[in-house]
Design a protein around this nucleic acid. Structure first.
Lengths: 198, 198
DNA sequence: GTCTATACGGCGATAGAC
DNA sequence: GTCTATCGCCGTATAGAC
């Protein structure tokens, strides 16, 4: 499946996909409405027939992506698995999201801090909390269940996993390398067992 | 030592420190020369008595920081230590850089990709190569010396360490938590031995 | 659904007075 | 070393014709 396919159908969806690609590549602020219009072969004024503003575009892109992603996380959390297996599934799902929605992940990764300052994007803060709850609860549960080290710093480990997974969007390009599932597996190998020889 | 202290003395250094802070907080593009001037209590035109352009400012900030950082890396690589100890020292030095030069690290972290497109900042690409050489050689040496796992994916591990160390600038604030050396130690605990209970 | 034309503001940068 | 004043450009967004 190509990246970023679910941004709606028709002309609106097409324009959103183009915008998504440009936002991911150049950054939200650095991408002008004229850039987006040019990529679509129209003039900037015509964009406003489809969207209220540039902010509306990025809003819709991020919302669509996050709604799908967290639906998948919820499904994993509802499964009858141990914390180690759930953590593995969450991480695998994250790498698959990078695979399937690379542009949207990149936008979220790079523009989230900037966009959070606007009321309109307050849901980004909610989603951050939700993601934090997922990872922290899995880590804590894993420590209790004695599958993770008893001296694990849950807070630092959470941040460490969160950051190191999502920044992979900066270098992971499935078409020129490993599949998402293989990357996830190797990543898990490091996080779970470390790089030291036993 | 407070963050970002070595940006020169006198008025020029003061202005650079202010700019450094704003660039780190709001981003390079989102920070206007008027913002910087206002923070300094002067008008935007007056800035041009000290600097050619906004680009000159960020250039000087990044160069100063990187020159110091890589001097430290070079010193570590020249020491008579094994790969595991050198890796530990490189990582500890990186966390100390986040501690001592948080703003400069944030700027490098967030603006590097954007700035690299200008010839003026081609040294950023050189520095990336240099950093990659340091980590990759340590990892490869560690595998040969049988201190790291023989099946280690050196390329992925390099990216993983690079990314996860530097993104810590987004959340690590020494004044409200652990010292840099303690963070480095816990980080190393995860990377070297993983989170699984043995 | 797109174009023409344009408003309006903020941007980086400059020249010369003080 | 700073201020006054301003230039020229480009940003988002709008109104109305086609």
């Amino acid at each position: 499946m190509p990246a970023s396919t679910k941004l709606g159908t028709g002309r609106r969806g097409e324009l959103l996909t183009l915008a998504c690609h440009l936002f991911a590549e150049r950054g939200f602020q650095a991408t002008t409405v004229r850039d987006i219009a040019e990529a679509a072969g129209i003039l900037s004024g015509s964009l406003y027939h489809h969207f209220d503003s540039k902010e509306t575009m990025v809003d819709e892109i991020i919302r669509t992506f996050q709604d799908e992603l967290f639906t998948e996380y919820d499904a994993i959390m509802a499964m009858d698995l141990g914390p180690r297996e759930k953590l593995a599934a969450v991480i695998a799902t994250s790498f698959e999201a990078i695979h399937n929605h690379r542009d949207a992940v990149a936008i979220y990764q790079h523009e989230s801090k900037y966009l959070q300052q606007f009321e309109r994007f307050s849901y980004l803060i909610e989603r951050n909390k939700q993601y934090r709850d997922i990872l922290m609860s899995l880590l804590a549960e894993g420590v209790s269940a004695e599958v993770f080290r008893e001296d694990l710093d849950v807070e630092i480990t959470y941040r460490f996993i969160r950051d190191s997974v999502w920044v992979a969007v900066g270098w992971y390009h499935p078409e020129r390398g490993l599949a998402a599932s293989e990357i996830a597996e190797r990543y898990l190998g490091i996080v779970l067992d470390g790089i030291s020889r036993k």
